[in-house]
Design a protein around this nucleic acid. Structure first.
Lengths: 247, 247
DNA sequence: CGTGCCATTGATAGGTCTCAAATACTGTGG
DNA sequence: CCACAGTATTTGAGACCTATCAATGGCACG
């Protein structure tokens, strides 16, 4: 397990997350300032980015790959509390110590900003704090949606909800509607799904098998899922019929 | 159930939440601007402030009392996703439609700002967006703490956690440490506790009885709780020994 | 062709929910 | 001040869902 280390400097103008990340609203001169305090780091799937309780002297954007935030109880019970996709922000300005474990679940590239300069820049660059506020409010909404799932949904509904979210995001990326059959890759292991959903991995496995038996989904290999009828999946998820248009 | 209606105009300088609310960092002239777009509303315990899906043309600070944010599944299952105490902020700048039900669980006074002018003021008043960002990040941390509770804690641990949080907040308000015996009022019904914790009210009742049997707490009436040994309560909550110093 | 990780499946135990009834409390009107 | 109605809370019995413990299967990689 080695840190893949810093990679070559890259121009913000060509950055794939340029229009969605914390820098989305920045002007050219503001980007130039950011470029002076940024550096890239890469991680391999499975590596830990930071441990909860460790000092963290940067904040960062996910450029590519998937990372997770998890919390752990003394006896080892774990709960994922955030799923970080490209353009999502990691770290809290004003906080020295990481509050969560951050782990790369796939190969991961992050655009890191040295914290001190970033904080100073925030004070004089409303474009950054405005965008960060917007992103944080979105995350809060997502967290609250997740609280409903954790507190009130059955195991079957939890699985269906997770599949619906991944399917929807995948359809968005591919610029296709959610009508008609969908097919996508599940970027999480059964264990990670369990940590996300507040279940055991055995229950996750059983419910996926059940959804397959009932023809709500079908699998090719362990990770590739296809959904013949997205409306059916949403019903199984137990949400309102609109299925969370707020995201 | 009547809306107690607007109350007399009040000076921001004398406001009890002046130093903790969204206006905390505002200068005198900024307060003057806020005063022009604010109005007070009072609600009686049990009243609904807004329904999820309704148009919401204001944002607000809780001045006194307690309100809750809840989400509901089609079949009626409910999950509380936020507990709003004095100084907490309600509503999302940039959003027209309320995403959650907001309910007064005690008599409640809110300081409301007309949304449009508030949004415009945010654009030219960094003190407001900075403070709002900070508050939103705090809420996100609290939501994630709650996700751990909902996903991984037992019923007994959930109850103990809730009691610990209320006890800690009460001790803070009274400017006393958490050493020695604590006594406080529970501002929630069993049903509201159940909605908060992702349990049924019967399970809440049983676990409170169990904690009493085991001398972790004692009750006077239904709502007044005393905790002889706070450390013991924290152990029951299953948290790290520090018990969430981050809040 | 092992080795190790990930996933599936089975049997059983245990925790929480559901349904039901009794009890305590609050506020109201006589 | 008391009786009553309505709400909140407690307690019980049983069912159901998910966790736990255990074994097996499948796939990638050396």
């Amino acid at each position: 397990m080695k840190d893949a280390g810093p990679i070559d400097h890259q121009n913000c103008g060509e950055c794939p997350i340029r229009h969605r990340a914390v820098c989305a609203r920045c002007e050219t001169d503001e980007l130039a300032q950011l470029e002076r305090i940024k550096y890239y780091r890469s991680f391999e799937a499975g590596q830990t980015v930071v441990w909860s309780g460790d000092r963290m002297d940067f904040v960062a954007s996910v450029v590519s790959g998937i990372a997770t935030l998890t919390q752990t109880l003394e006896d080892g019970r774990r709960q994922m509390v955030g799923l970080l996709l490209p353009s999502d922000f990691v770290g809290r300005p004003g906080r020295e110590i990481a509050a969560y474990d951050v782990t790369a679940t796939t190969d991961l590239v992050m655009c890191c900003f040295r914290k001190k300069p970033f904080e100073e820049m925030m004070l004089r660059t409303p474009h950054i704090s405005q965008r960060l506020l917007e992103m944080t409010l979105d995350e809060l909404d997502a967290a609250r949606e997740w609280m409903l799932l954790l507190g009130r949904k059955t195991a079957r509904e939890k699985i269906a909800s997770l599949l619906a979210i991944v399917a929807r995001r995948d359809a968005t990326l591919k610029l296709r509607g959610v009508a008609g059959p969908l097919e996508f890759e599940l970027p999480l292991t059964r264990e990670a799904m369990a940590d996300y959903l507040g279940l055991t991995l055995e229950t996750v496995s059983r419910q996926i098998s059940a959804l397959r038996r009932d023809s709500v989904i079908s699998l090719e290999g362990k990770r590739r899922v296809s959904v013949p009828d997205f409306g059916r999946l949403l019903e199984e998820a137990g949400d309102d019929s609109d299925g969370g248009y707020l995201n």
